[in-house]
Write a protein that binds this DNA or RNA. Structure first.
Lengths: 330, 330
DNA sequence: CTGTTAGCGCCTTCAA
DNA sequence: TTGAAGGCGCTAACAG
C-alpha cells in the first residue's frame, strides 16, 4: 500500500501538505493541492485510518451491545443507531451479549482496548460493565434498559405505563384472571413492565397473586414454557400479558398447539410490536415501541456527549402506543 | 490511560518484557511475569489495540455489508457471522447498503481505510466494489448473492432449484396462472429465482407471459405494490410466487386488504422463511433457507482465507427446503 | 503557506 | 532470557 510519503514524493511536496489537502484543514496553494490530488489518484492512495486513529487518539467506531440482533426489536434499534452514526462518520460494531454478563464484559473490554469512540448498551443487568466504561472516560448511552446506581445518558421507553395500558385494556374487555409473563429479574424492563401490570390490576380491583406471574428469558421458547406452566397450574388465567415480542409469539404458539381459543378463552396482549402482527391468527394486540427512534435518539445523544463530554447526563423517555387488534377482545 | 511503559516502570522491567508477558510469546522468567501481571492489575492497564494494529499492520475487524439488517434473513446471517467471528477473535462491523451501490462503495472504502481483516458482502449488483477489495488484497467472501466475473469465495443457496420447487408445488395444487414477484434485475438472487420459476412453468406445460412477472425492490411495500399491480392487470393470476420474505408479507397484506381469499382464490408461496409464518392467517408456505448456517459458513471461509490467502477460491452452495403450509393448498 | 520533526503505543528484530 | 531501539503511517507543533 502506498503511504502518505509516496504521495508526497510524487507530488513534490511534504507529507504535511498531503495531510492538509486530505483533511481540508489549513489553506493550501491550489497548485499544490491539485498535484496532491493527482498523485493520490495515480497511486490509488487511501489513508490508513489505523495510523490516523493512533495519532489522533480517537477512532470512528461505536459499539452497540445488545442481547440479540435476532430480535426484531434490537434490529430496528441498531438500524436507527447505524443511520445516525453513519451520517456522523461512525461505523457500528455489533455485539450480541445473549443476556450473558460475562459476554457483555468481554465486549466492554474490547471496546476499551479498541479505543472505541462510544458505546450504546442495553445491559443485561449488572451495572459494573457500564461503570468500567465511564471510569475509562468512554462515552456511553444506555438504551432500552436502565443502569442502576450510575448517572449515564439514557434512552428508555415508559415501560410501566405501557404495561399498565396493556393490562387495563384486558381488564376493560372483561378478563379477570390476567397473567403476566415477564423477563429476567435482573433486567429493568422486565421489572418495570411487571410493576405496570400490577398497578393496573390494583386499579381495576383485580387480584394479582404470584401464581399468575412467570419470569422467563425474553425468548420465544421461554414464553412458550411459561404459557404452558400457567395453563397447567391449578387455576389457569383467562388472559395473559407478555412482556416482550418473542415471548408473546411463544405464548401464542403454545395456545395454538393446545387448541386454546384466542381471544375467546384467553386474551393476549404483547409488549413490543411484532412484525406481521396484523397477519397473525388472530391478529395480536400489542404495545408498540418507537424502536427505530430509540436507536436514533441514543445515537444522537452519543454524538452530543462525544462533542461535549462534560455536560450533565440526560434521560429521554419515549412513549408507547397500544395497538388494539383481535387477540384481546372477546 | 496507562501505557506499556507505565507497566514496565512499575514492574521494573523493559516494555519488551511486558509485551512478551501479555502476548504469551517467548518464555519469560516467572518472577518477572508475576511482577508484570501485578503491575497490569494495579494500573488497570489495557493494551491499546490501535497501536498494536498499526504495528502489526492487521486488525481484528470484519465488515459485513448487507442491504438491510431490518430484514430477518440478513439478521440471521449476521448472527451466524458474528458467532463464528467472535470465537476467532474478530468483531463485526455492520454495514447496511440499502441496495444502493454508492452506499456500498462508501463502506468498501471504509473497510479499506480501516484495514479491516476481511469483508463479507451481499452485493447490490455491480462487481466493481468487490473488485476493489480483491485488488487491495483484502479477504472477501460473497454471501447470498453471486459476484459475476470475479473469482471469489462464495456461500450461496440453490436459488433456481428453490424457486422451481415453489412454483412446481403451486402447479401441482392446480394453480394455472402463476405469477412471480421477483427482485431487482441487478441482483443475482432475483434473476435466479425468476429463472427457476420459469423453468418450473415450462416443465408443467404452463405459460409464462411477461405480464405475470413483476420486478420489485425486495421490500414489503414493493411486494404490496407488485401484488396490487398484478390484481389490477387484465387477467389476474390465481397464484403468486414471491421471491423473498418481505415481498411475500407485502403481497399477502395486499391480498388481505382487498379481501382476496388465500389459498382459495390465490395461492401463495414465498422464498425465504418468515418469522411466525406458522401463526399467519393463513399460514404461509415458504422455501426455507439455512440463513444462520449461511453466515457461519461465510465466516468460516473468511477465516480460512485470512489464514491461507493464496488458496483457490471456493463456492459453497446450500440447499433450500419447501415448507408446505396452508397458503398454497386449495 | 509550506516543510521539518517528533511522537501516538506497541511489537520485534537485534544484540547482549 | 532480557533490554535497547527502530519504525508501523499519520498528524500537529513549530519553524521558516
Amino acid at each position: 500500500m502506498a503511504t502518505i510519503y509516496d504521495v508526497a514524493q510524487r507530488a513534490q511536496v511534504s507529507p504535511a501538505t498531503v495531510s492538509r489537502v486530505l483533511n481540508g484543514q489549513a489553506t493550501v496553494d491550489p497548485d499544490l493541492a491539485a498535484r496532491v490530488q493527482t498523485a493520490v489518484r495515480d497511486l490509488n492512495y487511501r489513508p490508513n485510518s489505523v495510523a490516523r486513529n493512533l495519532r489522533r487518539s480517537r477512532t470512528t467506531l461505536w459499539a452497540v451491545i445488545i442481547s440479540d440482533v435476532g430480535n426484531p426489536f434490537f434490529t430496528a434499534l441498531v438500524r436507527g443507531v447505524e443511520d445516525v452514526g453513519q451520517r456522523a462518520g461512525y461505523s457500528v460494531v455489533l455485539c450480541n451479549s445473549d443476556e450473558d454478563p460475562a459476554k457483555e464484559a468481554r465486549y466492554v473490554t474490547a471496546a476499551l482496548e479498541d479505543q472505541m469512540a462510544g458505546v450504546i448498551i442495553s445491559s443485561s443487568g449488572r451495572s459494573a460493565n457500564v461503570q468500567r466504561l465511564i471510569e475509562a472516560g468512554t462515552p456511553v448511552v444506555a438504551i432500552d434498559r436502565q443502569i442502576s446506581g450510575t448517572r449515564v445518558d439514557s434512552v428508555l421507553v415508559d415501560n410501566e405505563h405501557g404495561a399498565e395500558l396493556a393490562t387495563a385494556h384486558l381488564a376493560e374487555h372483561g378478563y379477570r384472571r390476567i397473567a403476566c409473563i415477564t423477563g429476567p429479574r435482573t433486567v429493568s424492563t422486565a421489572v418495570q413492565r411487571l410493576r405496570g401490570y400490577q398497578r393496573a390490576l390494583a386499579a381495576a380491583g383485580l387480584e394479582a397473586p404470584d401464581s399468575l406471574v412467570r419470569h422467563a428469558d425474553f425468548r420465544e421458547d421461554g414464553g412458550y414454557a411459561a404459557m404452558a406452566s400457567l395453563l397447567d397450574a391449578g387455576d389457569p388465567p383467562d388472559a395473559v400479558f407478555a412482556a416482550n415480542n418473542l415471548m408473546t409469539v411463544g405464548a401464542v404458539e403454545c395456545l395454538v398447539d393446545r387448541g386454546v381459543a384466542i381471544p375467546a378463552e384467553i386474551g393476549v396482549v404483547g409488549f413490543d410490536e411484532i412484525p406481521g402482527a396484523r397477519l397473525f391468527r388472530p391478529s395480536l394486540t400489542t404495545i408498540a415501541q418507537p424502536t427505530y427512534e430509540l436507536g436514533r435518539t441514543a445515537a444522537t445523544l452519543l454524538a452530543e456527549r462525544i462533542a461535549e463530554p462534560d455536560r450533565p447526563p440526560s434521560t429521554v423517555t419515549l412513549q408507547t402506543d397500544l395497538k388494539i387488534r383481535e387477540s384481546s377482545q372477546r
